[in-house]
Design a protein around this nucleic acid. Structure first.
Lengths: 218, 218
DNA sequence: AAATATAATTAGGTAAGCCTAAGTATTATT
DNA sequence: AATAATACTTAGGCTTACCTAATTATATTT
């Protein structure tokens, strides 16, 4: 039988906490992410372990099994496809989509998911710049590129800089940009190709074309 | 707070049983429609009565209040809009849509509902020929009648079916009958009241009295 | 009117998913 | 090593929405 909405949400939470690493989600992190009491988490993790969707024990926390991973990715795929649909076709803004997508991601129909994917033109990224798993669960691999070559509105991560001069690094520091920081290009100014960039803390800064070209993002 | 999926389903069931008339749904009919035990229905009807979504007592059965009616129509609106979307844009056939639409009808977002309506071009009827309530809950009125009540030799149009089961829809498909098709009753067979019907492509098929009674024409 | 059938209700129980409060491990600090 | 802080589990309970079996109320027959 299919997973419940709640089970799907737990798998998704573990997926988002563990990421690509070999981390193991703790009860507390999961409880916080889902807004439930840690005692409730214990119950559900045990249940998911029994169903072989996760590996779980008190000492090491929770890790998705192959099957659990598959299910989590499927839910993420649906979530991101629906977000794309809402923004592209239903006139939602990227900050309005989350709540509705949280509901839509639990609709159970592989046919619908795949038709939606087709309808949208097999998008690789959702409106937040997060990669959309394909029908086989594969995620687009992002290879870093200079900031000016990245698209607008995608969630980017600073992975490296091509100028290690003190002057440049100090400049970045002053702007509030550091390695591994997330940022989003809000706008490309037409006449001088400078970029309006939103940083983590909702702070916005302008970067000249020269400066931006030295920042590699993912 | 918003209604639960189950509450919405009860209201919808009462709506579909009572129709436009002043009927009052009985526990048994509701139980049958929802596939639950009559004892469970008693519980829920009492709860809906307390919430003033229905008027309920043992003697007269259940009737929607103004608010309950509003909620039911809203769910029906969503159901039929999603069905239309699935057929028009997701390559579903009209006999495939029901199960998924049962899930989609519970998505809570007025903005999404109205944007979907707009996206679809404010359709008046769904793929089964059922009228779609507009944003104010108003339904297009159709003066249609069951096929056996229509006269012989008149050009008729299939506007709706009163049985949306997969079995019936597949049967119609096989006979070559689809929504909005034109047809003409050539003959009423006396002894069993079955109908000889001529379809668009000059093709003639026999329809039993039972099957014909579920086809509404204009 | 009495007997029977049908419909609805009551009583007691279950499972999922959550809670609080109290207790037990584990890890960090002194 | 002893104490304190943090993390997790246990125990007992709650709500929703369902169930079965037994009972009561209403209709229908005879």
């Amino acid at each position: 039988m299919p997973l419940s909405t709640t089970e799907e949400n737990y798998l998704k939470a573990i997926f988002s906490i563990n990421g690509a690493n070999d981390n193991r989600a703790t009860n507390q992190l999961i409880a916080e992410k889902l807004g439930v009491n840690p005692a409730s988490v214990t119950d559900m993790l045990r249940k998911l372990d029994e169903k072989r969707l996760i590996d779980y024990n008190r000492a090491d926390g929770a890790k998705l099994t192959k099957e659990g991973f598959k299910q989590a990715v499927k839910t993420v795929r649906k979530h991101r496809l629906w977000e794309t649909f809402l923004v592209n076709n239903m006139n939602f803004t990227w900050d309005e989509v989350h709540e509705v997508a949280e509901q839509l991601e639990h609709i159970q129909s592989d046919k619908l998911t795949d038709e939606l994917d087709k309808f949208l033109g097999y998008p690789k990224f959702d409106p937040h710049g997060d990669p959309i798993p394909d029908a086989n669960g594969k995620l687009a691999v992002v290879k870093s590129k200079p900031l000016p070559e990245a698209g607008v509105a995608r969630k980017l991560k600073v992975v490296s800089v091509t100028d290690n001069s003190t002057a440049f690094l100090k400049y970045l520091d002053k702007q509030g940009i550091a390695l591994n920081d997330s940022l989003v290009i809000k706008e490309v100014v037409d006449f001088d190709k400078s970029l309006l960039v939103e940083l983590k803390g909702r702070k916005e800064v302008f970067l000249s074309k020269e400066a931006a070209g030295k920042i590699l993002v993912d």
